[in-house]
Simulated assay, not measured.
Amino acid sequence: MNVGIVYHLRPQSNFRFCKVGRTHGNGRSVSERIRELNNMRYGGFSDWVELDKIVVHNCVEVERKMHGELNDYMIGPGSEKEMFYVEKDEVKNFLTNTG
């Protein structure tokens, strides 16, 4: 199993966008991942913040399910494949019910 964290991030400057991802087993925390995303200006933003996170027994599977649930909201193909245009409560609901 891949015990880890599935997280929900938003850029402070535009809460309409979000990123759903995971971190596990590599010792990288969510805050470290946020720092990386901000440094690379992921999605054109450098002010990502954590909204929600959940520890799960199989973060790879939970992340895959979340991306499937949010597929209709995906921004588009490209390097930002984990970026969505969706209301924060909807993501929180998916995260709570999927995790």
Results as ranks from 00 to 15, higher is better:
Glu36Ser: 13
Leu37Gln: 08
Leu37Met: 14
Leu37Thr: 05
Leu37Ala: 07
Leu37Asn: 08
Leu37Pro: 07
Asn38His: 11
Asn38Ala: 11
Asn38Val: 13
Asn38Thr: 10
Asn38Lys: 03
Asn38Pro: 08
Asn39Ser: 09
Met40Val: 15
Met40Arg: 14
Met40Trp: 01
Met40Glu: 13
Arg41Ala: 15
Arg41Lys: 15
Tyr42Lys: 11
Tyr42Pro: 07
Tyr42Gly: 12
Tyr42Asp: 11
Gly43Thr: 06
Gly43Gln: 11
Gly43Ser: 13
Gly43Asn: 10
Gly44Ile: 14
Gly44Asp: 13
Phe45His: 15
Phe45Asp: 13
Phe45Thr: 09
Phe45Cys: 14
Phe45Met: 13
Phe45Arg: 10
Phe45Asn: 14
Ser46Val: 04
Asp47Ile: 14
Asp47Asn: 15
Trp48Phe: 11
Trp48Asn: 15
Val49Thr: 15
Val49Ser: 15
Val49Asn: 11
Glu50Phe: 02
Leu51Lys: 09
Leu51Trp: 09
Asp52Met: 06
Asp52Leu: 13
Lys53Tyr: 14
Lys53Ala: 10
Lys53Asp: 11
Lys53Gly: 06
Lys53Cys: 13
Ile54Leu: 09
Ile54Asn: 04
Val55Trp: 02
Val56Phe: 10
Val56Ala: 09
His57Asp: 04
His57Phe: 05
His57Gln: 08
His57Val: 02
Asn58Cys: 06
Asn58Ile: 09
Asn58Ala: 05
Asn58His: 13
Asn58Trp: 08
Cys59Met: 03
Cys59Arg: 02
Cys59Tyr: 00
Cys59Glu: 09
Val60Gly: 08
Val60Tyr: 02
Val60Met: 03
Val60Gln: 04
Val60Leu: 01
Glu61Leu: 05
Glu61Arg: 07
Glu61His: 08
Glu61Pro: 01
Glu61Ile: 03
Glu61Ser: 12
Val62Leu: 04
Val62Ser: 09
Val62Phe: 07
Glu63Ile: 00
Arg64Ala: 12
Arg64Pro: 00
Arg64Val: 00
Lys65Pro: 00
Lys65Val: 08
Lys65Phe: 02
His67Thr: 10
His67Ser: 01
Gly68Met: 06
Gly68Phe: 03
Glu69Tyr: 04
Glu69Gln: 10
Glu69Gly: 08
Leu70Ile: 05
Leu70Ala: 07
Asn71Pro: 00
Asn71Phe: 08
Asn71Met: 10
Asn71Gln: 12
Asn71Ile: 12
Asp72Gln: 09
Asp72Lys: 14
Tyr73Thr: 06
Tyr73Ile: 02
Met74Val: 00
Met74Tyr: 04
Met74Glu: 05
Ile75His: 03
Ile75Glu: 03
Ile75Tyr: 05
Ile75Asp: 00
Gly76Leu: 08
Gly76Phe: 06
Gly76Val: 03
Gly76Ile: 06
Gly76Met: 03
Pro77Leu: 05
Pro77Arg: 15
Pro77Met: 05
Pro77Asn: 09
Gly78Asn: 05
Gly78Met: 06
Gly78Lys: 06
Ser79Asp: 11
Ser79Glu: 07
Ser79Tyr: 00
Ser79Pro: 06
Glu80Thr: 15
Glu80Lys: 00
Lys81Thr: 04
Lys81Val: 02
Lys81Ser: 09
Glu82Lys: 01
Glu82Trp: 10
Glu82Ala: 09
Glu82Tyr: 06
